[in-house]
Design a protein around this nucleic acid. Structure first.
Lengths: 330, 330
DNA sequence: CTGTTAGCGCCTTCAC
DNA sequence: GTGAAGGCGCTAACAG
């Protein structure tokens, strides 16, 4: 496990470590002859520069960290993949950390990324670590919030127009079925769920409909919660005529509940905030609010790069992506 | 961005850096009084130790790297999540890198992980970087292959019994439909696809059936390939009576093709190597070979830990997980 | 064009 | 029980 250092290369090539460094980093002058010589030794010894040492010296790591609440959710992975591609093109590596919607593990992940000296942190927060995030920003680190904002935190953010899209979806359901549709929310700790709920309430108020608490089920963005919500709604004396689920996983859970209760999947209409992988296979009674993860990823990556390359300072940037409601065909 | 160092803490607390270090690492003696004093300053200054410097000095990073071919595939993410949990419990961090089934990016990812001095690399290889992997092993690094092995590489590995499961599935289809079922393979460069193909051929031979090349479609484990295979098979004069898809994404793609062609999803039976998220929602004509990602993840993490903690040496360990065929109800 | 040197932040002997 | 000092591998002045 004894690894080869720049010294070994220098000795073997009969030059100084500085020269090797210059060859490797293509800066400073070095004769063609010596360069070839050094490169040959590098290859022969299979020398791998030590990124720890380099970063320590340069006080730059060219890395970006990302903390996600759920890496098995394809939505977040689609965002992450776009970000990674874009950052890579600018010479930055991206490290993902999964915190499993758990604030404690999120805190830990943030700590690790700071200790690693990632130059920026991209965060889809659980909402439980406002203090840690605040301290990061205070310390002058670049923080970009995606998908979810955090109460009391002023930072760059890329979010959906949650209220607008939820309002539109609720209005659509109202027009089609009246006010008897169920709502499966996310956890109150997330900004997305609160905003989506506000959007629904706005639509109900505009239509002069009171909001029936029995039609609201508070989930936590997991498949299990969607399933439980499904059993709740479908077990009612008068089940709702449609359901609005606040994320893709819960939508999937809701369908599982329908299945478990022996209902056909088109028994009622479902509106899902966020796409389902399997959506195209469903029979026409699933409406989807598309979130455009690519656009979110691109915007987030662009903000990171401009903060890191361009001057660091400036007011927080807020980018809002417009989701698109695609309604079921019947 | 000027970060706080151990020196700042030492000065502020009126002690030496050695003492601060001792407090932080709970080793060596330090009086209760001084310890409290130091901890207070650490908290007040929000001091974050520099992991680069610590790792450089200790020649240990307590990190493990993982290179995956497709992070949007829930199968790999399920494996990754289990590994992460288990490694975390042993004090290791896991870094994911996504190479998008691309050998070039895989090579790059391997290089980065080595430069970061991750203590082990877990790899679900594209098959295109045998040389780089060989050099890693040669250099004494811990490498654990998961899901896929690499030709000519002797390393710890956790794999499925691909041939066995494919044989069983093919025998099942043979018994039910005779030899007229289509096969959608993965890329020849992956060991999994080659082994699964061998399993199918074994079953065919045992039944005395010749293998009809027109019934084999070579995909690349992507959704798109599954879709193209779908159009190929469904466009035949005499379409097959069933289809065996070598991974979950291609299965999904195949169903998309059925949908696009206006066929009902139960028009023919599909056997999928690897689970589909949406499987439970399908109407009874999807059979699934469950791969038990949790077991794979656990085994891989255990191997890593035992290599890193226990003595490093020993013959390569081969763990084979048995997938389970769950057949459609009709 | 190339070598010498100092030091990035931390841990770890070795003194006291 | 605590401090002083050296060095992990590398790069960036500064000499020559």
């Amino acid at each position: 496990m004894q690894s080869i250092t720049i010294k070994d290369v220098a000795r073997e090539a009969g030059v100084s470590t500085a020269t090797v460094s210059r060859v490797l980093n293509r800066n400073g002058y070095v004769s063609h002859e010596v360069r070839q010589q050094v490169l040959a030794v590098v290859k022969r010894l299979n020398y791998q520069p030590n990124a720890l040492a380099r970063s320590l010296k340069q006080e730059r790591t060219r890395t970006v960290g990302m903390v996600l609440p759920d890496m098995t959710n394809p939505y977040f992975m689609a965002v992450a993949r776009t970000i990674q591609r874009r950052l890579l093109a600018h010479g930055y590596r991206l490290f993902y950390m999964d915190c499993d919607e758990d604030a404690e593990r999120e805190r830990e992940a943030i700590r690790v990324l700071q200790e690693m000296r990632t130059e920026a942190v991209i965060l889809a927060g659980t909402g439980g670590n406002a203090d840690a995030v605040a301290r990061m920003i205070e310390a002058g680190r670049t923080v970009v919030l995606i998908d979810r904002t955090i109460d009391g935190i002023r930072a760059d953010a890329v979010t959906d127009d949650n209220a607008g899209a939820a309002d539109e979806a609720a209005a659509y359901l109202l027009g089609k079925y009246g006010p008897r549709f169920g709502i499966i929310t996310g956890p109150r700790s997330t900004s997305t769920s609160r905003e989506r709920a506000a959007g629904v309430k706005r639509a109900l108020e505009r239509a002069g409909c009171p909001s029936d608490p029995a039609l609201w089920y508070e989930g936590d963005y997991t498949r299990r919660a969607g399933m439980e919500a499904g059993h709740y709604f479908l077990g009612m004396n008068e089940p709702p005529l449609a359901v609005f689920s606040f994320n893709n996983e819960m939508t999937y859970g809701f369908y599982l509940a329908m299945k478990q209760r022996g209902l056909p999947l088109d028994a009622l209409e479902v509106v899902s905030f966020g796409e389902l992988d399997a959506a195209p296979l469903f029979e026409n009674r699933l409406s989807v609010i598309r979130q455009h993860p690519d656009q979110i990823g691109e915007a987030a990556a662009d903000i990171v790069v401009s903060r890191l390359e361009g001057g660091a300072e400036g007011e927080p940037v807020q980018r809002v992506i417009m989701p698109a409601l695609e309604t079921a065909s019947r």
